[in-house]
Write a protein that binds this DNA or RNA. Sequence first.
DNA 1: GTGAAAGCGCTAACAT
DNA 2: ATGTTAGCGCTTTCAC
Lengths: 317, 317
Amino acid sequence: MNIHDIAKISGYSSSTVSRVINNRNYVSKKARQDIQKVIHDFDYVPNDVARDLSKGKTHNIGVVLPHTDHPYYTQLVEGIMSAAFPAGYRIVMLPSKFNAEIEMDYLNRLRRKAYDAIIFTSHGISLNELLEYQQYGSIVICHNPGELNIAAAYTHREESYTEAFKWIKSQNYQHISILLSRAYKISATAQKTFQAYRNTFGSEPDKNLLNTDVTTFKDGYNAAMKLCHNNQPDIYFTNGDDIAAGVRQFYLDNNLPVPRLIGQEDQLSGKILNIPTINHHFHEVGKLACGLAINNEIKQLSVESDFIFRNQKNIEN
Amino acid sequence: MNIHDIAKISGYSSSTVSRVINNRNYVSKKARQDIQKVIHDFDYVPNDVARDLSKGKTHNIGVVLPHTDHPYYTQLVEGIMSAAFPAGYRIVMLPSKFNAEIEMDYLNRLRRKAYDAIIFTSHGISLNELLEYQQYGSIVICHNPGELNIAAAYTHREESYTEAFKWIKSQNYQHISILLSRAYKISATAQKTFQAYRNTFGSEPDKNLLNTDVTTFKDGYNAAMKLCHNNQPDIYFTNGDDIAAGVRQFYLDNNLPVPRLIGQEDQLSGKILNIPTINHHFHEVGKLACGLAINNEIKQLSVESDFIFRNQKNIEN
DNA sequence: GTGAAAGCGCTAACAT
DNA sequence: ATGTTAGCGCTTTCAC
């Protein structure tokens, strides 16, 4: 049962039927009623794929996600959805595991018009490759693209990071451990972290107190296990409250005094444990990213991040 | 640039080009090479929407989500994606806020072939309405549909709930507060909870110690605020570790002794605070649901849930 | 092995 | 107001 069947049965043409379906003008009352009756009687609904093909638009936005269990992505997705829904767009989840091949596949699907736009919450492929694909559709990334002319929504990490390190300095902590999710070379976030450190202390972070590929509670726990012996950090600057919680857990489990912690993302674990944190407002970032995607605007939007100070107490478990 | 252009330029027909694109047999080596050269030279890629229309299949699965911030849904979505990805399917997020109208809209999009199947992680509309729509595509729900012949993947709550209540009974707790996300009448989960209570205690739960619409840390906090005066619960059976954490926080903030807590979902907060919990294995449920959706199988699959005992300590903050 | 042509189902410019 | 028709771009059957 398609639009032509309805046309034939009702005795009108498919264009008139189309007008009725789409609530357009230039349809007589009678025609509208006749056609609506047939539509109703035959329980007809139009086919969205055919409509999309004809219009050259899907109202879908692809969202590339390295992993879904991390709060960074959850918050971003929520923000994106909050902007997509009222605009009549839907989100297609594209898990990537940072795999460049998979990311390229998704990029090619943009060319193939599988979705109208694509948002990279994070990406392994180079910015140059992304630039090349801009001609095929709207591409938005979620970090600062620097000079490159690519649509981006991101959080300003510099200020809050610097604020956090200034606070660390003011407290005279000596052995500062930094936990990162990805290596310095490939991660802009890691670079911002180091930059803030340098700006504050005028020196490089201690490489012996550095750990990368830390993304979960368990990772934080394991990092602490490795680091607690080297130089015994008196503070951990971590990339997530959950991770800070993991560090804390290791110390508790081993009857060691819990060092100072700084988290990120303003997660529940930080609230519970009173760990100071940094709120990056990823929900807002997601909203902005989605707006850019929908309107196909190539510009950069940023939001401020906040260092949230909390007076961590030494909690016994 | 479409398949006909490639056909014209290469001097072959569009069907031969199609065969090349899809790596089909019955194409001479020469034709394949000629065509591939043209495809390459003109940087041609096929259009996915046209393909979908022609094949009558989108490889998209809609996933209806009342809200995205709750771990129940996060875990489910992850599970669904873990099964969808290797099968070449993509997930379209469909936020519903339990709004029946929105849900109906999504159901109608299934009819319109916007996706091949739809998974309701939860739903406000009636099972009967879902049953009616089965003729239009694969529909999967994530709770026990009872006698109804509808595809479902779900967790067996009875055993773990009963185990939890039995433990409560063994400890002689008298004032048992129960926190629920949705009201008894509309929530199968609430009903299972009550049933387990009845089976264990042979009586109804105390209505004065009941709270519904509790879904977040903050809700748990507020529920505790309301309940701590009525009958002073000595244990809270909550619908999430985060919620239990909220209850705990209220007591701590008011310098009251923290009562016993039981959480659900095996969340990080429960791990940190050593709160006993119930793991419903929603990741696995999501996987199963996705399998049913893809294969259009109308059957019921269930997984066991586990009561995870932990020796909650009274933690000072 | 290759091609013509009829789908898939809807939209929209143009004509009347 | 309504209809004709040419798209949108790919797949697939059938004939050769």
